[in-house]
Amino acid sequence: MTHSPLHRAPMNAPNTVLGYLVPQQRWVAAGMLLAGLLIGLIGLTMGQPMWRAALPGTILFSAAILVRWHADRTHYGPLIALMVALLTFQGGHGVEHLVQWVQYHIIGYTTRGSNGLISAANSEWVHFLWNWGVLLVMLRLYWLGLRNPWAYVMLFWSTAHTAEHTYLFVRHLEVLEILRAYGEPTITAQGLPGIFGTDGWLARSPATAGTFVCTIPGLTTATRLDVHFWWNVGETILLMIAAYTHIHRNPQHNPAVVQ
């Protein structure tokens, strides 16, 4: 049994993805975002670490999305509400990876030091749970009726991304256990190589040694930071296209089609 998007949006529903993403109470949202940034800046000038300075803004951002999700659910139904929430959260997550990319390539931090804004959240635990969360939400969206070729590609993409993070997470736990046995319980074991990238399984496995697989530009030559930047860029773009396609193919979300 599957759900169909029975909920009919009101006639003043936005007909673009951007229209759904921009909150109707945009001044309130902008105010919350500015308040978060201001608190963050004050925190930074007071010598707080980046992750702590970014925390109030992140909490406000998340609260705004949840409020918006509730309102969207009432106005446009569960599919749109969940899709918009996922897009917003994934967009925020993408920004975090963008910041990491800037820290590494532009500012010049090491890969281990390029932790984004919420460095405390840059852990294998968080990435593992996040990606499983994205995958489960995508499955829920499919269940609710998000079905178009781009949604299927996104589903495949997020499944592959989650698989890599599961691989990373399992290895992370194994390494931590060995480090504990060494009497080194404070080592974080972050940033271990995954499946892709220059130190990843594909590049360094005995099974691929000496084959073209270990030198595919980007896929097996990029740093882990770049690999996950592109994972998330891909995820965000695919989700946006899937949402766009859904909105434009379904009359109840597109007044222009209804007319």
């Binding site: 281990r112 290895r171 194994e174 390494v175 060995i178 480090l179 060494y182 080194e184 080592i187 974080t188 074991a189 271990l192 190589p193 130190d199 990843g200 399984w201 360094r204």
Partner: peptide
């Protein structure tokens, strides 16, 4: 890049 090797290196590289 086995977990045993990475665990040996991590205390130094970190």
């Amino acid at each position: 890049t086995s977990v045993q090797t990475l665990a040996q290196w991590l205390p130094v590289t970190s």
